[in-house]
Each structure stands twice: as C-alpha cells, then as structure tokens.
C-alpha cells in the first residue's frame, strides 16, 4: 500500500542566542566555535514553552495546513528527549489539543534525536496495514546542554509534525521506502533525574553519527536501487553544521542537495525535531515530482532513512501555515542572563 505525508507543520520559538553570547560567558573563542560547529545561533524556548507546547504548535500547523478532520487521526506519537513528564504522555496533550481524542491510540517515543522519525515509521506501519486512517508523528524538543559543554552552543528548541496517511489522492508526498540501521552504541545519554545529557566526546563522531548515518543511507539506496543523483534534495540529521555536510560528501550527495534542509546554522540542533525540520524546510520549497532523501540519526544508536517523492498535491497547501524559513525569520535575541532564565537555569527556590 502507498503511504506518505498528508500534511506537515513546524514550530520554532521566536527567541535566539548567538554563539558569541554564550562564548563570552565562558571565555570561548566565538570564531573558532562557529567555524568548528557551523552553528551561529540557536533557538531558545519562551519561559512557558516546553516539548509539549512545541509539539502542539507544530501539530496544529500540520492539521491547519490542510484543514484536517482531526477525528480521523488514529494514533499520536511524540518523539522527544525532553518530555515534560518522566511518566505521563506528551502525546495525550497533543491529541487533546488538536481534537484527535478519544478514539485513537497514543504513546511517547524516545530515541535521542531520532524519536520523531521512529514515530513516522510506526505511523507508516499502522496506516500501511490499514489499522488506522491517519497517524500523527511528531519530533519536538527543548534540548538541554550543560553550561559550558559543547552542546550548549547547539542544543535548541523546536519541532515538526507529520500526518501520515495511505490515501494516495491526499498525499502531498509519498514515502517510497524506509530503512533503519541500529546498534547498541552508547555515544550520548541522559540518566534518570539528570538535568543534562552526557556524551562520549569524539566517540559520538565516527562510531556514532557517521557509521549509522552512512550505513542507514547506503542500506536504503541499496534496498531501492537508487543513487544520490536520483534525488533533488537530501537531509541528514544535523547536530551541527559540519556533520551533515561530511556525511553528504561521504555518501556522494552534493552541497546543493542538502542546502534547503540545512537549517542548523540558524536554528541549532532541535534533537528529535532536527531531521524532521530539515525535511519540512525542503518540502517548503520542493516542486511536484522532486525526490528527497533523508536520514535521521539518534544516539544510542540508530538511523532511519527515507526516500520521499513530492506529489502535485503539495501546491494546494502553500502559504496556509508558516514555512520553516518564516519561523526562522524575525528572531528576538537574548543575552545569556535571559537565556538562562528561559531555559530554567535560574533556581527560584
């Protein structure tokens, strides 16, 4: 059965902090950091925003884009590594807030930065088997990076939501196939009750990100018998600006192919939202018939690769909700004090 994207929506908080502002606090060299990470600023949530509000905002943009009858949604899965509750689902909040409750199923996902793409895959399975009519898959995070950790320069806030369906006539993009590559590789983790994640430093690179992203991508290309040049665009998980560029190069994709989806320099890493945000930014500009290759990566570790083909239907729903570019525009810059406040780093006792 054909499955694909009925709609999608993104959400990015309006606040940003520049790399220079963080570097200033820790005496870091902003130029070296910017050059090394290729992240120039990152999004920061408002004081009253969290992964649930971001998931709802992205999901509402997705359903409003196509004027969806949300009672058709049979499953809501939210992927995040910053779910507001350790126990109590984010997805029920989303389901209620988009009007999908109560005839549906829901659960929260966690797989570092690829929990959102895992949710997409599960929805593909459910709509593909005919178990449900439509599935809502979301990746949303208010990512945490410990003060003066490398992650502090990239850990951002944002999310993207996808409505997955099986009626070819209503798909704005067909998901041609998907493939995953998963091993037990502890390159990044956060223990119960810890505020900030820990990571294996440079171990997150080759054994983590690059091995899994390239293996996942190659697996899908091989499974489908396609080549990088068969695609108009490509999106790779973007923990920083450098990794996706190198992964693309290793796989034979060009800088032009990844350009529209490479939002990390102005956004930072939205973790579970990262790859899904890149796909959303690419869909915003893709034309009917375009093919998009995407690979999400989650530490721990695994990758989910997707082959997407845009349909004629996409043109019907332009301009109804903000594009990723529009969400990136007109930011409000914070100083470190305000940033610390927004991120809940100030203890009110």
């Amino acid at each position: 059965m054909t499955v694909g994207i009925v709609s999608y929506g993104a959400y990015i908080p309006r606040y940003r902090i520049k790399t220079e502002e963080i570097a200033k606090v820790w005496g870091g060299d902003a130029e070296i950091l910017k050059n090394g990470l290729k992240v120039f600023e990152k999004s920061v949530p408002d004081v009253d925003e969290d992964a649930a509000t971001i998931a709802v905002s992205a999901a509402r943009n997705a359903v409003n884009r196509v004027g969806l009858d949300t009672q058709r949604i049979g499953a809501v899965y939210t992927g995040s590594e910053s779910h507001p509750y350790a126990v109590k689902p984010t997805s029920t909040i989303v389901a209620e807030a988009v009007g999908a409750s109560p005839d549906m199923t829901a659960a929260d996902f966690e797989f570092a930065c690829k929990a959102g793409s895992a949710a997409v895959q599960v929805c593909m399975g459910l709509v593909g088997s005919g178990m449900i009519d439509l599935g809502l898959a979301i990746g949303a995070d208010v990512s945490q990076g410990a003060p003066n950790d490398a992650l502090e320069y990239t850990a951002a806030a944002g999310g993207a939501a996808y409505v997955i369906g099986n009626k070819e006539s209503e798909l704005i993009a067909i998901i041609e196939d998907t493939y995953s590559f998963t091993t037990d590789t502890p390159d990044f983790w956060r223990r119960e009750s810890q505020h900030y994640p820990s990571h294996g430093g440079r171990f997150t690179g080759d054994p983590g990100y690059f091995r899994h992203v390239t293996s996942g991508a190659k697996g899908l290309l091989k499974k489908m018998g396609t080549k990088p040049e068969d695609y108009d665009y490509a999106v790779f998980h973007q923990p920083n600006g450098k990794f996706p560029e190198r992964a693309a190069q290793m796989l034979g994709f060009t800088k032009e192919q990844i350009k529209p989806g490479l939002v990390v320099p102005r956004l930072g890493n939205t973790y579970s939202g990262s790859c899904l945000m890149g796909i959303a930014a690419t869909l915003d500009i893709a034309k009917p018939g375009d093919r998009i290759f995407a690979t999400a990566y989650g530490s721990g570790a695994g990758s989910d690769a997707f082959s997407i083909r845009v349909t004629d239907k996409i043109e019907e729903f332009r301009g109804k909700v903000p594009t990723v570019e529009e969400l990136l525009a007109d930011p409000i810059y914070l100083d470190y004090g305000k940033y610390a406040h927004h991120k809940g780093k100030i203890n009110f006792g």
Binding site: D46, D48, E49, A52, T53, V56, S57, R60, A97
Partner: peptide, 11 residues
C-alpha cells in the same frame, strides 16, 4: 487595539 491570535502554552 493590536490584533492577537491564540497559542498553546504552559499556564
């Protein structure tokens, strides 16, 4: 007098 629209937030 300014125009506003609803958003979903923590109360």
């Amino acid at each position: 007098g300014k125009r506003v629209h609803s958003v979903f937030r923590k109360l």
